[in-house]
């Protein structure tokens, strides 16, 4: 059963098309990273998937059926903004979740609280931003969901906690859980995701396996005698690009795999704007 399938999803806010004909299918046990600029439509797409906003058109199915309240027992969601009640303590949040989710695992929650260094009896208001986010993540993991949707999960976490979060994502995916997470931080996606989707102006402009991208996408550079550097992105057949550049009689031609960041910039066509 495919945990998440999106068919031709559109979401319009007035004149603005936030999500434009998005189709996506995410297999079980996959860590899927959704990358895009601010306002690209990542959060709107996630909100549509979870029924937090109504779709303009298109269909979403979770575990093979349309979203129903009972489906949420199999899904965990951590929003970009921390929406947990700040006047409650982590222990009270745990009790709240335990009563709501049938598979909530207190033992796992205890382990995660230790891993994320969460103080259980202080109200969230007295915790740092990073710790509040860690509480939200630990609660989501402890629901033992089959599908976890994380919207900018690492925002507010310090580098150590970010590392622990990414490790946690990878290890739960190894247990068969499906993770969909959006991020601005391409490095995080590169570290944790097996498959990525790049969303730009509401459209899914690229969907691919991270390993395949590394194998197929190259930067080919030609250096000329006067010191000029000519750089081209090669998608698939880099030999053709090399050939073309050699015809210009450079001093040297080199090829190296693109980083995910370079793939992102080349895909959304913003390399000049970003100095890439």
């Amino acid at each position: 059963m495919i945990p998440l399938r999106i068919d031709h999803l559109c979401k319009r806010y007035g004149d603005r098309l936030a999500v434009d004909d998005l189709s996506l299918s995410i297999e079980r046990g996959t860590v899927f990273g959704l990358i895009g600029r601010n306002g690209a439509g990542k959060s709107s797409a996630i909100a549509c998937v979870l029924g937090l906003i109504r779709t303009t058109s298109g269909e979403v199915s979770l575990f093979g059926e349309p979203l129903q309240p009972k489906t949420f027992d199999r899904i965990a969601y951590v929003p970009e903004i921390n929406c947990l009640d700040a006047w409650m303590t982590p222990l009270q949040h745990i009790e709240f979740r335990r009563r709501c989710f049938s598979r909530f695992d207190r033992t796992l929650m205890g382990e995660l609280m230790e891993r994320f260094e969460i103080e259980p009896t202080r109200t969230l208001r007295k915790l740092s931003k990073g710790q509040r986010q860690a509480v939200a993540l630990a609660l989501a993991f402890s629901q033992r969901p089959e599908l976890m949707i994380l919207d900018e999960p690492a925002s507010g976490l310090d580098p150590v906690l970010q590392r622990r979060l990414l490790d946690a994502i990878v290890s739960i995916a190894a247990d068969g859980m499906t993770v969909v997470f959006s991020s601005h931080q391409i490095g995080h996606v590169e570290q944790a995701a097996e498959r990525i989707g790049i969303i730009d102006k509401g459209r899914l402009v690229l969907e691919a396996d991270v390993d395949q991208l590394r194998e197929k996408r190259f930067i080919v550079e030609a250096v000329f005698e006067d010191g000029r550097l000519l750089r081209e992105y090669a998608n698939g057949d880099a030999a053709d690009v090399e050939e073309r550049l050699r015809a210009l009689a450079p001093v040297a031609v080199s090829r190296r795999p693109m980083t995910l960041e370079q793939v992102f910039f080349s895909t959304i066509g913003a390399s000049k704007e970003y100095g890439g």
Binding site: L50, G51, L52, P69, K70, T71, F72, D73, I75, Y77, P79, I81, C83, L84, D85, C100, F101, S102
Partner: peptide, 13 residues
């Protein structure tokens, strides 16, 4: 904002 937590609970709204 809290709707993002409450509306994903496994119960009818």
């Amino acid at each position: 904002e809290p709707a993002r937590v409450f509306w994903v609970l496994p119960s009818e709204r």
